[in-house]
């Protein structure tokens, strides 16, 4: 399953709930304000570092760049463009959007 999170981890608990439900074999894609979760020096970065030991974490590059976060992205988070988003959605049998 592909999990997407589009809310800031500071504003909503969508990321935490996603992380609590993401199983091995799935992937997480951060989009829109969700990309703030993948930035260095934050509490969510520590959680994602833990997550990335078992589950790949992606962030949508256009959303990262729009927010000025390009240089702050956590090591290990893979940046994808819109066609990469489509590839992920096609690769996993289902998509769960944590809104």
């Amino acid at each position: 399953m592909l999990h997407t999170v589009n809310k800031s981890p500071f504003d909503r608990n969508a990321l935490d709930t996603c992380l609590a439900h993401a199983k091995k074999g799935s992937a997480i894609l951060l989009i829109e304000d969700g990309v703030y979760a993948a930035t260095k020096g934050t509490a969510s970065a520590k959680k994602l570092e833990q997550t990335m030991k078992t589950i790949p974490v992606y962030a949508l590059q256009p959303d990262v760049e729009a927010r000025g976060m390009k240089d702050r992205v956590l090591d290990g988070v893979k940046l994808v463009d819109y066609s990469g988003f489509v590839d992920l959605a096609a690769e996993y049998p289902t998509v769960q959007s944590w809104l």
Binding site: Q61, P62, D63, E65, A66, R67, G68, K70, D71, D81
Partner: peptide, 13 residues
């Protein structure tokens, strides 16, 4: 605080 962060490039969105 994110509103006034440097280096915002929105072409992609």
């Amino acid at each position: 605080v994110y509103q006034i962060v440097k280096g915002q490039h929105t072409k992609g969105i």
